[in-house]
C-alpha cells in the first residue's frame, strides 16, 4: 500500500468537518480514481497526501512511514502532484522542468516529454504559448522530473476539451503501465469508468464506496446512487 490513512479529520475554517476518514488504504499500483461530487473533500485528500495541508487529527503513512516523520521536501519529490489548472512557470518548457530538477540536461528533458506525448521541439517552446492540453502534459512531465513513486492528479482534465481529455487519459494509463501508480481525482463518472482500476467514492468528506468501478451501482448507500444519478449519461 502506498498510502494508509487512519482516523483522518480535517475541519473547515468555520469548524465544520471537511474530511473524516476512519481507515483507507491506497494501492501502490494501477489507476486509483477518487470520485465524488464537488465539495466532497477529494482535493483536500490529495493535498494531505503530499502535505500541502495537514490533518487536524489522524495518521497518514507513506510507504510504511508516518508522513509527519518524513522530510516534507523528500515526501513531495516522491509524491508528484498535478493540479486542476496547468501551472506554467515563466520561461521555456526546459526552464519549467529545471524547476523540478535543476540538474536536468536536454536529453533527459526530451525523454521526459516523450513519456507524456510531447516531441523534442517542445523543449525550447515558451510555456505561456502552449495550449491547455500541452501545458498540462508539460506539468505531468515536470512532476515526473523528480522521479516520484506515485502521481497525484487533481481533476487534470477539467479545463480541457473532450479530445484532449482522452489524450491525457491515454498518457496517464501509459504511465501506469510503466509502473507509476496514479491517484486521479474526478467528479466525472464517465472518466472513472474509462480509466479506473480501483475506485474510492467520497461523499460529504467520508468514504462512501471503495472497490471496482463496475460494482459501484450495486452499493446500498443511497448517497452513492444519488451521485451516480446526477451524472450526465
Amino acid at each position: 500500500m502506498v498510502f494508509e490513512l487512519e482516523g483522518i479529520e480535517v475541519n473547515g475554517a468555520n469548524g465544520s468537518q471537511r474530511l473524516s476518514i476512519e481507515g483507507l488504504r491506497l494501492p501502490s499500483n494501477g489507476m486509483t480514481v477518487i470520485v465524488g461530487p464537488s465539495g466532497a473533500g477529494k482535493s483536500t485528500l490529495l493535498r494531505l497526501l503530499n502535505r500541502l495541508e495537514i490533518p487536524d487529527g489522524g495518521l497518514i503513512r507513506f510507504d510504511g512511514r508516518p508522513i509527519g516523520e518524513t522530510d516534507p521536501l523528500d515526501l513531495r519529490r516522491a509524491v508528484g502532484m498535478v493540479f486542476q489548472e496547468p501551472v506554467r512557470f515563466p520561461g521555456t518548457v526546459f526552464d519549467n522542468l529545471r524547476e523540478a530538477d535543476p540538474s536536468i540536461d536536454e536529453d533527459s528533458a526530451e525523454s521526459l516529454l516523450k513519456r507524456v506525448g510531447l516531441d523534442s521541439s517542445f523543449v525550447t517552446r515558451l510555456a505561456d504559448e502552449l495550449s491547455g492540453g500541452e501545458a498540462q502534459r508539460m506539468c505531468i512531465a515536470r512532476a515526473l522530473a523528480t522521479g516520484p513513486m506515485v502521481l497525484l492528479m487533481d481533476e487534470p482534465t477539467s479545463s480541457l476539451d473532450p479530445a484532449t481529455t482522452r489524450k491525457i487519459e491515454e498518457q496517464a494509463l501509459a504511465l501506469v503501465g510503466t509502473g507509476v501508480p496514479i491517484l486521479w481525482v474526478t467528479h466525472d463518472t464517465g472518466q472513472m469508468h474509462r480509466i479506473a482500476s480501483h475506485v474510492i467514492c467520497l461523499i460529504d468528506g467520508a468514504v462512501a464506496y471503495e472497490g471496482p468501478a463496475a460494482d459501484m451501482t450495486a452499493v446500498p448507500d443511497p448517497r452513492v446512487a444519488e451521485f451516480l444519478d446526477e451524472q450526465p449519461s
Binding site: 503530499n50 500541502l52 521536501l73 523528500d74 513531495r76 519529490r77 508528484g80 502532484m81 493540479f83 489548472e85 501551472v87 512557470f89 524547476e99 523540478a100 506539468c139 515536470r142 512532476a143 522530473a145 523528480t146
Partner: peptide
C-alpha cells in the same frame, strides 16, 4: 498562490 504551491509540490523549500 497556485504557482507557489506548484513549486512546493515539486519539493522546493
Amino acid at each position: 498562490r497556485r504557482e507557489v504551491e506548484a513549486r512546493l509540490a515539486l519539493g522546493q523549500s
